[in-house]
Computed example of a mutant assay.
Amino acid sequence: MDSINDVLQSTGFAQLHWQMVVMWVIIGVLIYLAVVKQFEPLLLVPISLGALLANLPIHDVILQAPEIQYTLSESGEISRTLISPGGLFYYIQQGVSLEIFPPLIFMGVGALTDFGPLIANPRTLLLGAAAQFGIFATFFAAVGSGAFTLEQAAAIGIIGGADGPTSIFVANKLAPELLGAIAVAAYSYMALVPVIQPPVMRFLTNEKERKIRMQSLRKVSKTEKMIFAIVVMAFCLLVVPAAAPLISMLFIGNFIRENGVTERLVRAAQNEIINVVTIFLGLTVGLKMGWDKFLDPKTLGILALGIVAFVIATGSGVIMAKLMNLFSKNKINPLIGSAGVSAVPMAARVSQVEGQKADPDNFLLMHAMGPNVAGVLGSALAAGYFIAILGG
C-alpha cells in the first residue's frame, strides 16, 4: 500500500483541487462558445486551452523560469551557468510580459484595414471618439465601486473599447493580476456585439432615423491613404507617446498595405504573422487564468462592468450621430454611430444589418467603417493616456 501511495503522490492527481474542477467547467463553456457558437474562435480556443494548462498540476512545470547559477571568479569576473532552461511556456508568455504580441496584432490589423471611409468622411472620427465615453464611464464606475484600484479600473475600462489586444496591453501594464479575467471579458463581449448592440441601437433611434440614406463616399487615392498613415501616426504619437507601441504598429501595417510595392509583406502581416501571434497570445492569456486568480468576486465585477462599458460605448456613438444631425445638412444615419467601438469589422456589419431591417436597399457598411476604424485609434489613445497617467 505504501508503494501505491508513493506512486499516487508522484502523479498530478494528488495535487488536484476542487477549484480546478470548477475552472474546467468554465473552460468547457468557453470552448462550447468558441467551437459550437463560433464566438471569436480564433482567440477563445487558444485562451481556453491555455486556461486548461493553467488549471492542471503541471502549471508550475511548464512555466518554470530558467535557473542560472552565477559565479564570482578571483579576478572579479562574473560567469553564468545555465542549470535549467525553464519551461516552454515561460518563454512564450514573454511575448505579453515584454509587450510584443499586442503590437504585432495591431500591425496585422493595420494591414487588414482600409482607412478610406474615414478619410472620405472625416466627421465620422467624432463618432469613434464619442464611443470611447464607454471607457471613461466604466473607469469611474469601477473606481466608485471601491473594489478596484485606479490602475485596475483603467484596465477594466478599456474593455469598453471592444479591442482585445489593447485590453491585454493595458492590463499587462497596469493590472497583470486581472489579465485573464479582462481578456476573457473583452473577447467574449466582442463576440457578442451582434447580440448586445442592436437593442441599444433600436432603443435610441426611431424608424425614420434608421432609414436615413447617406451620400456615397468619394474614392480615396493610394497617395491620400499613405499620407494619412504617416501624418496621423506622427500626430498621435506626439499627443500620446505612451500609445506608441500600438499606434506605430497599426500604421506601419497600414502603410505596407497601401504603398502597392510590398505585397509579400502585406500577405505575411495579414496571415502568417497575425495567425502565429494570435495562437501564442491566446495561450499566454489562458495561462493567466489559474483558479487562484480567476475564481474571485472581482471577476464577476469585471464581467458586469464590461457589459456596462459596451452598452455605454454603443449608445454614446448613436447619440453623437443624432447630435451632429442637428447641425448638418448631410444627415448621418445614427446606426453607424454604434460602430465607433473597435470591433472591426463586426460592429460595422451590425450597423449594416440593422439599417437593412429598416430599409432593405440601404447600404451602410462602408459608412460604418469610418467610425469603426476611428474607434481603433480612439481606444489605443485612451490606453496610452491611462498608461501615461497611471503607469508611473
Rank of each mutant, 00 (worst) to 15 (best):
S3G: 06
D6F: 07
Q9Y: 05
S10R: 12
G12R: 10
F13A: 09
L16A: 03
H17C: 08
V22Y: 13
V22Q: 15
V22T: 12
V25Y: 08
I26N: 05
G28C: 12
G28K: 13
L33F: 13
L33D: 10
A34T: 15
F39Q: 14
F39C: 08
L42V: 06
L42I: 09
G50W: 10
P57V: 00
V61K: 10
E67T: 11
E67S: 05
T71D: 06
E74N: 11
G76Q: 00
E77K: 05
I83R: 14
L88V: 14
Y91S: 08
Q93S: 11
Q94L: 15
Q94M: 14
L98E: 05
E99W: 07
F101G: 07
P102A: 03
G108V: 03
L112G: 04
P117T: 00
L118W: 00
I119M: 05
N121G: 01
N121H: 02
T124P: 03
L126C: 04
L127F: 00
G128S: 05
A131T: 01
A131D: 01
A131M: 04
G134K: 06
F139C: 14
A153R: 09
A155I: 15
I156A: 09
G157R: 12
I158R: 06
G161Q: 07
A162W: 04
D163C: 09
N172G: 08
L178Q: 10
A183Q: 06
A183V: 07
A186T: 15
A186D: 14
S188W: 07
P199C: 09
N206L: 03
E207D: 15
K208L: 13
K208Y: 08
R218N: 14
K222W: 04
K222N: 07
K222G: 10
K225C: 11
F228W: 12
I230V: 15
V231P: 06
M233H: 12
L238C: 12
V239R: 15
V240N: 05
A244K: 07
I247D: 03
I247Q: 03
F251C: 15
N254Y: 06
I256E: 04
I256P: 06
R257E: 02
G260N: 14
E263F: 06
R267V: 02
E272H: 13
F280W: 10
L281Y: 12
P297S: 08
K298S: 12
L303W: 04
I312V: 15
A313H: 01
A321C: 13
F327L: 04
K331I: 02
P334Y: 00
P334A: 00
A348S: 11
R349W: 05
V350F: 06
V350S: 07
L364V: 02
M369T: 00
M369F: 00
G370T: 00
P371T: 01
V373M: 01
A374W: 00
A374N: 01
L377E: 02
S379Q: 11
A383C: 12
Y385M: 13
L390A: 05
G392Y: 11
G392A: 14
G392C: 12
